[in-house]
Design a protein around this nucleic acid. Structure first.
Lengths: 338, 338
DNA sequence: ATCGTTCTTGAAAACGTTCCTAAGAACGTT
DNA sequence: AACGTTCTTAGGAACGTTTTCAAGAACGAT
């Protein structure tokens, strides 16, 4: 039971018989005589000295922490991003703290507000819904921020986004090459950034390849989750007979896979399925899922690097990066239509 | 571009024409006259005043933050825990920060060390490997800590653990009821806490039901991941012909599902498969996976409550909770053996 | 009219750190 | 021997907040 009071610089200084300033200097790698440095280090070790983060932060204005805010820790695309970002920021000397905000813009605004209290040196945020209020909160924050996702052009914030439109184009092109013509979209909520981008991309791709859009082939799930994907697919199958389904993310696509199986349809023979994000879930699925790789790791990496630059160089020009998509073909689309 | 210096209590006080103390009192709900309170609030709003977290922490010794440390954010069981814990701690007025440490005990020790600098008021940690060094770091930390997982009896730290042994017993019992006799275990590394517990539980259950243990039916994966599960299952199939496989967690079991399919075996007809943790992955799998529910949500909830109590009441007696398992039966075990 | 009580407000200390400034020691140069 | 330069070390201010203490105002009771 170490009921002893936590030690501080003054205690270490007293024990070593030197000034507080000298202790700080030695412990932070400043110059000092051999003898003094040794005494300080011994005293610090004996007292189990650990520097206080808030005192240091108050003095230096730095926390050495970066916050990553994601809507849903359960979405594997965010898991992928977390992994990537952790590595990058650690290399630059920052600790990563992850905050799961939920899809509600208000809770993201609250998060930005609380970060303005100085909990972190920077924020990586991937907002699902971009409201004017959120944009306002992001713009007026004194904190360096990088957005992973699309922003209106007039907003002066660094961002890295995927190109879902081109990505969906790859999926449509591939499906057409496999002989599919009735290509359905199981989308997430269209009032979200990815939802609206994917719908637009889907419609553009259909037009480009000369297919007429058909509202019966478009359904909207209540969220980007497995369960929502199943429900939406059930609705889709109730109103039309697609020969291919594009899920707006991998979880929706896996939901489609399961619902197709439940309806007695075979993938890919009866219906081909494509997901988006190319996460672990695509590989785990049965049959394994062809998926559009929207570069989540690359986006996360670029965003983290951008944020670190922004922290070190606050006046650098604003960057807007776009990461190119590619297609990972797996079992769920290989084999021609019946 | 708000290049203005961040505002503080002194600026607000000057603008409102009152003392710093009064501003603090008003903003923290102390008593003050109607008029003074109004002036303070106006001045604070005009200046966009936001209190500084580190200054407040330094003064009060509180951060209102709780850290949750998990080995791997990609493991769905931790996702489940994160979701549960977020809700509980938010209700008690704490913010949750998640830290992904990896399975290396050293990085967990480093985390405990850094938390001793005062980044959080408490720590929830679910260590994969419990080394003497880690125990030492946990015991000697001044931070309130609750461990999610097993601890040696002599360690005086609150903990909430699952009962894997009983859980595996449920799985074995169920499989025997389905006519299975050659029940294999695809385990994770045995130098981990769950790995050793699950091996012991498996052997005990076999004995209890009168089955002879067979080393050819036991394989050890290099981690608790999907890929490791596939490799281990491939090795298992190379050396024996089980009629049932228990995966030490859901990811390993999904790996087994996929590898069995690749080997041309049908689940559950040829081989039944059971996972552990009963995560989303069990439901997403094809066929859906029977899984032992080790109460991850209940554990997370109990642990969070324990931690909050420990923070508010540091001298409360040490609690060691055990959460009972149950079995969620799904397609992967329903149907008799060939 | 005097006293005691309650209420409002301000001054100032404290939390633990970093870093600026300057004092003194050590040493080389003229 | 006197002086300038460099190096080591200590003192003390500052970061922004909360909170204790005390002073003064307001008010009712005797």
């Amino acid at each position: 039971m170490a009921a002893t009071r936590r030690s501080n610089l003054a205690l270490v200084a007293a024990r070593a018989g030197v000034s507080v300033a000298s202790v700080s200097r030695v412990l932070n790698g400043g110059s000092a005589s051999e003898d003094l440095a040794r005494r300080v280090r011994e005293a610090a070790a004996e007292l189990g000295y650990v520097p206080d983060a808030s005192a240091r932060t108050m003095r230096t204005g730095r926390t050495d922490q970066i916050t990553l805010a994601v809507a849903d820790v359960g979405n594997p695309v965010y898991v992928q991003m977390m992994r990537t970002v952790t590595g990058i920021v650690a290399k630059a000397g920052y600790r990563l703290v992850v905050s799961s905000t939920g899809s509600d813009p208000q809770s993201q605004i609250d998060l930005v507000g609380s970060l303005n209290r100085g909990y972190a040196d920077g924020l990586l945020i991937s907002p699902l819904r971009v409201t004017p209020e959120l944009l306002d909160a992001l713009s007026s924050s004194r904190l360096p921020i990088v957005v992973i996702g699309s922003l209106p052009p007039e907003v002066d914030i660094d961002s890295v986004r995927a190109d879902s439109a081109t990505g969906i184009g790859l999926a449509v092109e591939h499906l057409i090459g496999q002989g599919r013509r009735r290509i359905a979209l199981v989308n997430g909520p269209v009032d979200t950034v990815p939802g609206s981008a994917r719908l637009a991309g889907y419609l553009a791709a259909l037009e480009r390849f000369g297919l007429a859009p058909n509202s019966e082939l478009q359904v909207t799930a209540t969220g980007f989750t497995y369960r929502a994907g199943r429900r939406a697919t059930a609705a889709l199958l109730g109103q039309s007979t697609p020969d291919a389904i594009i899920g707006a993310n991998d979880l929706l696509a896996v939901g489609a896979l399961k619902e197709l199986a439940a309806a007695g349809l075979t993938v890919p023979t009866d219906v081909a399925v494509v997901g988006m994000d190319d996460t672990d879930a695509a590989e785990l699925a049965t049959p394994s899922l062809t998926s559009v790789d929207l570069g989540s790791s690359k986006r996360a990496k670029a965003a983290a690097q951008l944020l670190i630059r922004r922290i070190e160089e606050p006046d650098a020009p604003v960057s807007r990066l776009v990461i190119d998509p590619s297609l990972s073909v797996r079992e769920s689309t290989l084999g021609s239509a019946a």
